[in-house]
Design a binder for these strands. Structure first.
Length: 774
DNA sequence: GAAGCCCACATTTTT
DNA sequence: TGTGGGCTTC
């Protein structure tokens, strides 16, 4: 245990050791927040608290995975695995599945992602014959989401005079009705959207005291990461579960709260002390990540915000270079300057490409950088954009999975019924929908008993419908016995999707086929990982439950390759790079024009800028352009007010002719800045080298190499039969490890292996993929 | 039912 | 500019 605490500084140790009441850990950027959380959990375990009594909540799967791994290193794989650790959404969807009947769902409910729910909302707006210029699907979705995050049910919405008045004034009086219909359609579908997972958890805990009591007792210690990003629904869950025993520890940094547009409420962290009386506050103020200059510059910026918890973040690292501020003539030149400087950083400062990031405010800005990087043969990777699970071909296949697991799923039904084309058109689907709404049943019900629900279609269509029903029923039946991988393969062949995908030889078609193959691989991997761990019965429903909460960030991002990272500032949160370029730092872009109306919006933008700068370890360059191509036209732009917020002693501004007050600037100033800009550009220019490594331009889309087909054989391999205690093996995923014991139970032979890097695992030998090394 | 055309539109997006 | 949705046409 000494060991455990010795790795921490004084304030980190204090935070870890305090376990007997509510605590709030304000963790400045780069102050070792994850370290504290993981060590705290390890400390609790060493104090004798069983792992299954600890609830640890994060916002991303990635964060929870990383934390689990680090805890496993401290206390061993077995204990780490027994923790209740995951994202809010995954933990509570698990609980909701167990308690589904109590809230009128069944445990196989499916989850609508944002585009699924936008589709349904769009459909409802059309069915209600409302003007979709006034009722825009995205806007309505946002409004509904905000209501749900605030735990306002459709009924409460309609009964809330203030909201109704607001909707009336903003000429959207039917919002309450749309919300009501949307929610009832989801229910008929036995489906929930992301926000429902939190809202229904609250409803479950509110209406079922015995359930609340049960989980209150179970979760004897609750930890929450990134508390500044919680919304009301999440806050209330933590409050309800935590207030019985009061052992709640939340970690966060109010200065990094950047998700208010998703319902995050910074007040949750600002007022945490009021929610849990006698809260002990700990502040982690030493930044281990960045140079003094970067930390000081960021401090001087964030000081301009009114609403914040006082803290004094400092660095004892080297002083470091000043932040360089570079002005470019246009967005194209900005990209050129940045890519030139990247070459210089690599060849002169010996940075690896993966040490470098380009951060921007909006995704649309990535394009010019892509082009200039490609021209210079600099490998890069773009984060964000369309994620794997959002691609049409993937969504369509997942829709089959969803419909089989949960035939009520309306969105899945719509996607699948005419894919691949089987002659069932919109008119027919509309008729089915009508019947379904009339009888308040799912589309699937109508399909299964068309006569009973009075579905009027001609005999040709009727035949097509019944053969579709037959096909789906076959899958549903098979799903009872086949595992997820087997049924997935069956679906792809029986529907002809696979055949069709491989027929298309256009580049897009081939990329689609590759994505489908990748999905198949993902299902296979999902099954085989669990089989190796000794779980035998892995169903489609399990795959779906997990994959519907995954995002692109969770996919194995083909290693830490030598690539420059391009991403929005939002998605850079939590990451760090040796050198960071913050680009497009202009008025109306950063801060965004949309968020300048209210002070709170502007403060959030400033926090966002703070997040951007504090990603940098060694050095940081801020760039802005004087003109920018946006939405089809070129506009002149001015430097961001945020540049003025940073104390100039931490900046090296090459272009001192810029006047922040005077937007236009004198023509002298303009030409002066042009001249300096030229100097700047030539300073960064590196002569083109013919022997640039990594010639291959990196591909923007996430194309994951197709793995070789792995044949899953059910009999043990030669290797497996020969395996004995003391053998060293090389496992496909876990790497090298030594066999500590072999156990025979039932028909299954298991090996307990201590891996060099992956920790101790037990492998079921008939599935495990490895080679004996000695 | 599918392709093609036109039009409106355009932050950020952990789940 | 470039994308996605909806409408029209064959």
């Amino acid at each position: 245990m000494d060991n455990l605490l010795n790795e921490l500084n004084k304030s980190q140790r204090d935070a870890v050791e305090f376990c007997d009441g509510p605590s709030l850990i304000i963790a400045g950027a780069g102050s070792g927040k994850t370290r504290v959380l993981t060590h705290k959990i390890a400390y609790l375990l060493e104090q004798g608290l069983p792992p299954y009594y600890i609830l640890a909540l994060t916002f991303t799967n990635k964060a929870s995975r990383e934390m689990k791994e680090r805890i496993a290193e401290l206390v061993g794989e077995k204990k780490a695995r027994q923790l209740w650790m995951g994202t809010f959404h995954s933990i509570f969807s698990r609980i909701l599945r167990m308690e589904a009947e109590k809230i009128g769902f069944t445990s196989n409910f499916t989850i609508f992602d944002s585009s699924d729910s936008a589709n349904l909302i769009r459909l409802i707006i059309r069915e209600m014959e409302l003007d979709d210029k006034i009722y825009k699907a995205n806007g309505v979705q946002n409004q509904i989401s905000r209501a749900k995050n605030g735990l306002i049910t459709p009924k409460m919405y309609a009964n809330n005079r203030e909201i109704m008045e607001y909707d009336r004034i903003s000429k959207r009086p039917m919002l309450a009705e749309i919300y009501k219909k949307y929610q009832s359609r989801l229910r008929t579908s036995n489906s929930m959207d992301f926000d429902d997972l939190l809202m229904y958890t609250n409803i479950l805990l509110r209406d079922n005291p015995e359930v609340l009591e049960n989980y209150r007792n179970r979760f004897q210690y609750i930890l929450v990461d990134e508390y500044q990003d919680t919304n009301y629904a999440q806050h209330l869950i933590v409050k309800q579960l935590g207030e019985a025993h009061n052992r709640v520890c939340v970690v966060g940094d109010d200065a990094q709260s950047i998700y208010s547009f998703r319902g995050a409420n910074i007040d949750n962290i600002l007022n945490f002390k009021n929610t849990f009386p006698n809260t002990q506050t700990f502040k982690l103020e030493q930044n281990y990540r960045s140079t003094q200059n970067i930390v000081n510059a960021a401090n001087s910026l964030i000081k301009k915000n009114k609403e914040q918890i006082f803290k004094n973040v400092f660095s004892e690292n080297e002083v470091g270079d000043k932040i360089e501020v570079v002005s470019a003539f246009s967005d194209f030149e900005e990209a050129l300057i940045v890519s030139n400087q990247i070459s210089r950083l690599r060849f002169d400062d010996h940075l690896s490409y993966s040490d470098i990031a380009i951060l921007y405010r909006t995704n649309a800005q990535s394009r010019v950088f892509e082009e200039s990087l490609r021209k210079k043969n600099i490998p890069y990777r773009i984060y964000g954009g369309l994620s794997f699970y959002q691609r049409k071909e993937i969504k369509d296949i997942i829709a089959y999975f969803r419909l089989i697991v949960n035939p009520g799923d309306e969105d899945a039904f719509r996607r699948v019924i005419n894919y691949p084309a089987r002659g069932i058109g919109n008119v027919t689907v509309a008729r089915i929908t009508e019947c379904a709404i009339l009888h308040n049943v799912s589309l699937w019900h109508v399909l299964s008993a068309p006569l009973e629900y009075g579905l009027q279609v001609n005999s040709g269509i009727s035949k097509k419908l019944s053969s579709f029903l037959e096909l789906m029923t076959e899958f549903v039946v098979k799903d009872e016995t086949l595992n997820a991988f087997e049924i997935a393969q069956d679906i792809l062949t029986k529907t002809g999707i696979m055949k069709e995908a491989y027929k298309d030889l256009t580049p897009e078609g081939m990329s689609r086929a590759q994505n489908i193959q990748e999905l198949v691989n993902a299902v296979q991997e999902f099954v085989s990982i669990r089989q190796e761990e000794g779980i035998e019965d892995i169903r489609l429903v399990d795959f779906l439950a997990e994959s519907s909460l995954l995002t692109d960030q969770d996919m194995n991002n083909d290693g830490d390759q030598e690539k420059v990272s391009l991403m929005t500032v939002h998605s850079a949160k939590g990451l760090e790079f040796k050198h960071v370029f913050v680009v497009g730092v202009e008025e109306d872009l950063f801060p965004s024009s949309m968020s300048q109306n209210e002070i709170r919006g502007l403060e959030e933008e400033r926090r966002l800028f703070y997040v951007a700068i504090t990603r940098a370890e060694k050095s940081c360059t801020i760039t802005y352009a004087r003109s920018r191509f946006r939405n089809g036209t070129t506009n002149s732009t001015r430097p961001s007010r945020f540049l003025n917020d940073i104390d100039s002693k931490y900046l090296s501004m090459k272009d001192n002719s810029i006047s922040f007050e005077n937007n236009q600037g004198s023509s002298d100033g303009f030409w002066e800045s042009m001249r300096q800009r030229r100097e700047q550009a030539s300073k960064f220019a590196t002569p083109q080298r013919s022997n640039t490594p990594n010639r291959e331009p990196s591909v923007n889309a996430k194309k994951i190499p197709v793995r070789n087909e792995i044949t899953t054989s059910l009999s043990m391999s030669q290797e497996a039969t020969m395996l004995t205690e003391g053998n060293v093996i090389e496992h496909e995923r876990f790497g090298r490890g030594i066999v500590t014991s072999i156990e025979q139970s039932g028909g299954n032979k298991r090996a307990f292996v201590e891996f060099e890097s992956a920790g101790s695992k037990q492998l079921l030998l008939k599935y495990a993929k490895f080679k004996i090394v000695k």
